[in-house]
Deep mutational scan, measured.
Amino acid sequence: VHTTPGLPSGWEERKDAKGRTYYVNHNNRTTTWTRPIMQLAEDG
């Protein structure tokens, strides 16, 4: 699994054909234009 540093585990930053940045979530095979926020791990 490709992961971009600074993004949550399983996420990758890519660019489309027009050079726009988007983000790929390999965990559930989705994409988004919005940069994901790293969540702190919570117990329980």
Rank of each mutant, 00 (worst) to 15 (best):
T30N: 05
R14H: 08
L7C: 03
N27E: 11
P8C: 10
T31K: 05
L40E: 13
N27R: 10
R29C: 08
N28K: 07
D43V: 12
M38Q: 14
N25Y: 01
T4F: 08
T4L: 03
V1Q: 03
N28P: 02
Q39D: 13
G19E: 14
H2S: 13
R20Y: 15
G6P: 12
T32F: 00
M38I: 13
S9A: 12
Y23A: 03
Y22D: 00
L7F: 06
P36T: 00
N25V: 00
N25D: 10
Q39N: 12
R14V: 10
N25I: 01
M38N: 12
G10F: 06
W11E: 02
L40D: 13
N28M: 11
H26R: 09
Q39K: 10
L7Q: 07
S9H: 10
Q39F: 12
T32Q: 11
H2N: 15
S9M: 14
T30F: 05
R29L: 08
A41T: 15
T3W: 07
W33E: 06
R35P: 10
W33C: 02
T31Q: 07
G10V: 01
Y22W: 03
D16R: 00
S9C: 11
W33R: 08
N25S: 03
N25E: 01
W33F: 08
S9K: 15
G6S: 13
D16V: 00
E13R: 05
I37C: 11
T32Y: 00
T34Y: 12
H26C: 07
D43Q: 06
G44Q: 14
R14L: 05
T3F: 10
G10I: 00
R20L: 11
G10T: 01
T4G: 04
W33L: 05
T3I: 15
D16T: 07
P8M: 09
D16E: 01
P5D: 14
E12T: 07
Q39R: 11
T3K: 14
G44A: 12
Y22C: 09
G6W: 05
Q39C: 09
L7P: 02
V24G: 01
G10L: 02
M38F: 11
Q39P: 13
P5M: 15
E13S: 08
G44R: 14
K18E: 09
N28L: 15
D43R: 10
G10P: 05
H26S: 04
G10N: 09
I37A: 14
G19V: 02
Y22E: 03
L40F: 09
P8D: 09
R29S: 11
G10K: 02
L7K: 04
G19L: 02
N25Q: 01
E13W: 01
Q39E: 13
I37Y: 09
K18N: 12
R35C: 08
S9N: 15
E12H: 07
R35A: 09
D43G: 14
D16K: 00
G6V: 10
W33G: 04
P36M: 00
L40R: 14
R20S: 11
A17K: 14
W33M: 07
P8F: 04
H2M: 13
R35S: 07
E42F: 15
R20C: 08
R29H: 14
M38C: 12
P5R: 14
T31H: 02
V24E: 05
N28T: 12
L40W: 09
R35F: 01
H2F: 02
P5E: 15
P5H: 15
E12F: 01
E42Y: 09
Q39Y: 09
R20K: 12
G44S: 15
I37M: 11
G6D: 14
H2G: 08
V1W: 03
L40Q: 15
D16W: 00
L40I: 12
N27A: 10
N25R: 01
I37E: 14
A41R: 11
W11L: 00
R35I: 03
E42Q: 13
I37Q: 14
E12K: 01
D43P: 08
V1G: 02
D43A: 14
S9P: 15
